[in-house]
């Protein structure tokens, strides 16, 4: 009996030690965004222990931040419209840019954007745009628009993102409306479009739509460019199509949560990733759109040749961004529950 108690106390001790580590950093990031090796390198260099957890949508991130006790998370990676919303709700800490030596590496065109003028609260991490990926081994039709996905021949053959703003936005765009419409009539039309499209949808998956494409589970997917680029790496017969409706552009940002306990460590982590060679590693493992000027010079020919990775500027410029629509979000919530 004594032995058991001693063992037990030891165990409690271990748990206690884990908690009291001052030199930690609690990162909450999108799944498949930063390779484990980068985090391990950072830990080795700085001695900081990174607790890394993931989310799969901006809405999930917001729910996690607003329900967790202040100080639970330090560093997060919200997208553009979510930054605006979090600033309005006073969830973010203003950034002290003097702590970021490598800040000048960032491309100017991704700074001072509408959602956070002067970048008081956020700095861009990377950008991404939606593309259509088609497996040319099986699908020969000409596809140029989201409307082409309604083709009854594609029954159960499409994967879409499991993200309400992006998927409903896609329907809006296909119908010629703004991605962010809150007009009831237009949303009703979008609902019909999505119910029609649902017959062709095999799965909604934000975490890894590429898997379904690679394993031939589906032949068509609307997904973030990096997912498509990774699918292309596995199967060169996948064609990347930029929809003529101008897809969605999303810029993900570093932001520090209000009341964060490890701010200095968060700055160290941001500054580490802002290093050109570190960003190069990240962007080559998960080929999103690079926002680092210095990294641009280092990128491999493989990345540059991958059509889904190296997105042309004109595509990025004409893509539409998700806007914060306030309480109209209820309409999107309900529509989403209906089509799922």
């Amino acid at each position: 009996m004594k032995k058991i108690i001693i063992c037990f106390l030891l165990l409690l001790g271990i748990t206690g030690c884990g908690k009291n580590q001052e030199d930690t950093l609690n990162v909450l990031n999108w799944s498949s965004y930063i390779p484990d090796s980068i985090i391990e390198d950072f830990e080795e260099e700085t001695g900081i222990i990174v607790n890394y957890s993931t989310y799969s949508s901006n809405e999930e991130l917001l729910a996690k931040i607003s329900s967790a006790k202040e100080g639970t998370y330090d560093l997060i990676f919200p997208s553009d419209y979510m930054i605006e919303l979090m600033i309005n709700r006073d969830l973010l800490e203003p950034l002290d840019k003097s702590k970021l030596v490598n800040i000048n590496n960032l491309k100017k065109e991704y700074l001072n954007l509408d959602y956070d003028k002067n970048n008081t609260y956020s700095l861009p991490f990377l950008a991404t745009t939606t593309v259509i990926a088609v497996n040319r081994d099986h699908i020969k039709d000409n596809i140029t628009s989201y409307n082409d996905l309604l083709n009854p021949n594609y029954k159960n053959n499409i994967v879409l993102l499991d993200d309400q703003r992006i998927v409903i936005g896609m329907a809006n765009q296909a119908l010629g409306y703004s991605m962010n419409t809150t007009n009831d009539l237009e949303l009703k039309k979008a609902e019909e479009f999505l119910l029609d499209l649902k017959k062709n949808v095999k799965a909604y998956d934000s975490d890894s739509p590429k898997t379904l494409l690679i394993t031939n589970e589906v032949d068509i997917g609307v997904m973030w460019n990096a997912e498509a680029a990774l699918a292309l790496r596995e199967n060169p017969n996948i064609e990347i199509i930029f929809p003529k409706e101008n897809g969605a552009l999303s810029i993900d940002n570093y932001a520090i949560v209000k009341g964060a306990k490890h701010k200095d460590n968060a700055y160290k982590f941001i500054d580490y990733i802002l290093r050109p060679e570190v960003m190069k590693q990240i962007i080559e493992e998960y080929p999103y759109i690079n926002v680092n000027e210095e990294t641009e010079k280092l990128l491999s020919s493989e990345y540059l040749a991958n059509k889904a990775a190296n997105i042309p500027d004109y595509i990025i410029n004409q893509a539409e961004m998700v806007q914060n629509i306030g309480s109209n979000i209820d309409k999107y919530d309900k529509l989403w529950a209906l089509i799922k």
Partner: peptide, 20 residues
């Protein structure tokens, strides 16, 4: 669970979701 307490089932869940 919180940020510093990932358990195996949760880890496996996210691994399965993020690919093969």
């Amino acid at each position: 669970a919180g940020p510093s307490s990932n358990t195996l089932p949760l880890k496996i869940y996210s691994m399965i979701k993020t690919g093969i």
